[in-house]
Amino acid sequence: MANTLDTPKDELILQSQQKMEQFLSLPQWSTREKLALSCRILFDAGHDSGLAGQITARAGEPGTYYTQQLGLGFDEITASNLLLVDEDLNRLDGAGMPNPANRFHTWVYRRYPDIQCIIHTHPFHVATLSMLEKPLVISHMDTTPLFDDCAFLDKWPGIPVGNSEGQMISEALANKRCLFLAHHGLLVTGRTVEEALMLAHLFERAARMQLVAMAAGNIQPIDESLAKEAHDWTSTPKRHQAFFAYYARRTLRKHSDCLQ
């Protein structure tokens, strides 16, 4: 016999979140392993753009972070071939060199101390939408983690290898988790690697949906209060971890070498 049919929605949400904490048992990976898995997940999701794009995560010592080697595609990243660098992009551990465009990551990390991971890619639909100089529109429940959480930089500052570009990008982020860069691509941040991965994955899906919807007609807005509710429902550490674990399982069936 049902006992919850008169239970208010906010109480049902709280109960569900408590059960997630209790019953969702998820793998424990190192930061290096999560970055390698993220690269392979993003590659399979269409974020490949040759050697463009970077992923970083803070390392143990202040002012240091992990990133991939310049010259390797996302499909070639393993836990063992990642680099450890400082804020000036000097290599502290590993072989090769980091992407010089990582400089803007330093600016973001210094401005927002809670951010632990940054993903920047040029996936096809995001890059295509970026040419229209229009913001990302969130109008479907699947992409509500991005609702009111994506800033827009409407002018391209050029290649992000200088300090002025880093300052512009870090300021444009404006305490949101995501940034859409006109004529460029996406930038997402997370307090965990799992959070950043989820946002990057959904960003490309949202751009693809927007382009298709624009071709079919006028995009209709969704109710802001309900979108905020959905945003908060999916924006919890346990949901991020579960999302990440699902795509990691899919990736490991094809890319078992990434945890070397």
Rank of each mutant, 00 (worst) to 15 (best):
L146Y: 07
V188T: 10
K9G: 06
A245C: 02
R40L: 11
T236A: 07
L92C: 04
F23G: 06
K254H: 13
F152I: 09
D48E: 15
K228N: 06
R91T: 15
S225I: 02
L187W: 01
V193S: 03
A59S: 14
Q116H: 15
F180K: 01
A36Y: 06
D86R: 01
H122N: 13
I115S: 10
Q28D: 08
T64V: 01
L5I: 14
L89G: 09
I219F: 02
R177P: 02
K254W: 04
F124K: 13
K19W: 04
G162P: 06
A245V: 07
L259P: 14
S80C: 12
K19L: 13
V212C: 09
Y112N: 11
P123H: 00
C117R: 06
L179W: 11
Y109Q: 07
W29G: 02
C178P: 05
K19V: 11
N99G: 02
F203N: 07
E21H: 13
R32V: 00
I169S: 00
H201S: 05
A245E: 12
G60R: 06
N90M: 09
Y65P: 02
H231M: 10
C117Q: 08
A59F: 11
H120E: 12
T64Q: 11
I138E: 02
N3V: 12
N163G: 15
A95D: 13
K9L: 15
P160K: 12
D257S: 14
D86K: 01
A57Q: 10
L179K: 00
A59M: 09
N175V: 01
Q17C: 10
L35E: 09
K254V: 05
A2M: 03
A45N: 09
A2R: 06
V108T: 14
T236R: 10
A242Q: 11
I55H: 08
D10Q: 10
F244Y: 10
E195H: 04
G166C: 08
D75G: 07
F203S: 01
L136T: 01
M198H: 01
E195S: 05
M209I: 05
